[in-house]
Amino acid sequence: MSQPTQVDPRGLRFVAGVTAVVLAVVLAIPSEPVRIVLLAVQVAVFAVAAFIGLQWSPYAIVFARLVRPRIGPPATFEDARPPRFAQVVGLTFTAVALVLLLAGATTAALVATAFALVAAVLNAAVGLCLGCELYLALRRLSPAGA
């Protein structure tokens, strides 16, 4: 098995923190256009991180250019697979939220946004990957022998 991609854990926290702020603003500002634009931006950011690579997320680029030079290299690295999976989970929730918002189901859209926000805050504040915690529980549901 090849060595999995390694990432700076502080960068992951930073990305989760920016994500949390964006999603909190979506909930806090009662303006449909602002919400649509911010959610669309967040969906795009999640998509880049999930499908191209964590280090290509615009937030991760900001971290690498502006934050890391000031705080020096990390003491440890982390496996990129769990956080990348988390970006897929975040993408799913925010994409659903965006579609609901465009369809006029504002309350449902905000609830979906709140799920992504909870996961992002937990990730930023205590390093917990909520999507990862649920991963095995979901895999268990697949038919036996699959």
Binding site: P30, L110, L117
Partner: peptide
Amino acid sequence: GPLILLAAAVVT
């Protein structure tokens, strides 16, 4: 929105 934000904070 703010109510859901508050609920999200409590759940977190």
